Computed example of a mutant assay.
Amino acid sequence: MDNIVTFLGAAFALTGSPGPNTLSIAAAGAAFGARRSLGYMVGLLAGMIVVMSAVAAGLTSLVLAIPNMLQVLALLAVVYFLYLAWKIATAPPIGEETAAGRAPTFPGGVFLSLVNPKAYAAMGALFSGFTLAVADPATDAFFKIAVLTLVIAAVNLAWLSAGATLTRLFRDPLANRIVNIIFAALLLLSLLPALIR
């Protein structure tokens, strides 16, 4: 039982701290509202399930063993983060539905999770640092994925709600633009630690 409590504490700390996924869902909530961002949030969660499965199976080590693969993945991440930050920063205030104001989508959420360096680092720490089912590695991995899926869903809902609350507070178009630009900048800054390594 102690392992589960410690695991949950670490899970909330690692998945709930500001990072690309959490900041992007808060930014989507601020820029597009909670309802329009739900598909994106579900995509982030689906992508994280793929990341967790890859980490649990050891596939990330195999992929990163390919020459220059880390650089290719980093470039993909940077390009997508720039695109997402641009969409968030230039999103019109909620209520001004335009073609330019389309909210991020389910596939975009999946893609962001797959190219998010923090996701792999956090899952690597959680999967290697804790054992929840001693007798069977497959059961251990399954249990970790199930618990982490619930934790990440709760964390994402909290960040989405926080972002949407900011938009409701700042209905003024100028204030809304400032909030969107701040979130876009924070999203790009969250990528820096992974790129500096």
Score class of each variant (00 low, 15 high):
residue 134 V to G: 05
residue 128 S to G: 13
residue 131 T to H: 10
residue 2 D to L: 13
residue 73 L to Y: 11
residue 82 L to N: 01
residue 113 S to P: 08
residue 25 I to L: 10
residue 142 F to V: 08
residue 166 L to F: 00
residue 78 V to E: 12
residue 99 A to C: 04
residue 18 P to D: 00
residue 71 Q to H: 12
residue 136 D to E: 00
residue 101 G to T: 06
residue 68 N to E: 13
residue 130 F to H: 02
residue 117 P to N: 05
residue 180 N to D: 14
residue 6 T to M: 01
residue 90 T to I: 04
residue 88 I to N: 07
residue 103 A to T: 10
residue 103 A to F: 15
residue 37 S to N: 11
residue 94 I to C: 09
residue 30 A to Y: 09
residue 129 G to A: 06
residue 64 L to V: 02
residue 82 L to Y: 02
residue 187 L to A: 09
residue 37 S to C: 09
residue 121 A to H: 07
residue 16 G to P: 02
residue 39 G to P: 03
residue 183 F to I: 03
residue 58 G to T: 05
residue 24 S to L: 01
residue 88 I to M: 14
residue 95 G to Y: 14
residue 51 V to L: 07
residue 161 S to I: 05
residue 87 K to F: 10
residue 157 L to K: 06
residue 9 G to V: 00
residue 193 P to F: 00
residue 64 L to M: 10
residue 187 L to R: 07
residue 47 G to V: 04
residue 186 L to V: 05
residue 81 F to K: 02
residue 191 L to D: 09
residue 172 D to V: 02
residue 39 G to N: 04
residue 144 K to Y: 01
residue 104 P to Y: 02
residue 1 M to R: 07
residue 124 G to E: 01
residue 133 A to G: 03
residue 84 L to N: 11
residue 148 L to W: 05
residue 2 D to E: 15
residue 136 D to M: 00
residue 50 V to S: 10
residue 165 T to C: 06
residue 62 L to W: 14
residue 92 P to L: 08
residue 174 L to P: 03
residue 185 A to H: 07
residue 79 V to R: 08
residue 69 M to D: 04
residue 80 Y to V: 04
residue 18 P to H: 01
residue 178 I to S: 08
residue 196 I to C: 03
residue 36 R to L: 13
residue 61 S to N: 09
residue 185 A to G: 10
residue 179 V to M: 14
residue 161 S to P: 04
residue 189 L to D: 06
residue 107 P to F: 14
residue 192 L to Q: 10
residue 46 A to Y: 10
residue 143 F to Q: 08
residue 48 M to G: 07
residue 104 P to A: 01
residue 131 T to W: 13
residue 93 P to E: 05
residue 4 I to F: 14
residue 136 D to Q: 01
residue 104 P to I: 01
residue 13 A to N: 11
residue 90 T to E: 13
residue 151 V to S: 13
residue 109 G to Y: 13
residue 74 A to P: 02
residue 31 A to L: 10
residue 192 L to G: 04
residue 143 F to V: 11
residue 197 R to V: 11
residue 52 M to S: 11
residue 28 A to D: 12
residue 174 L to H: 12
residue 70 L to F: 09
residue 91 A to C: 00
residue 57 A to G: 08
residue 110 V to C: 06
residue 125 A to N: 00
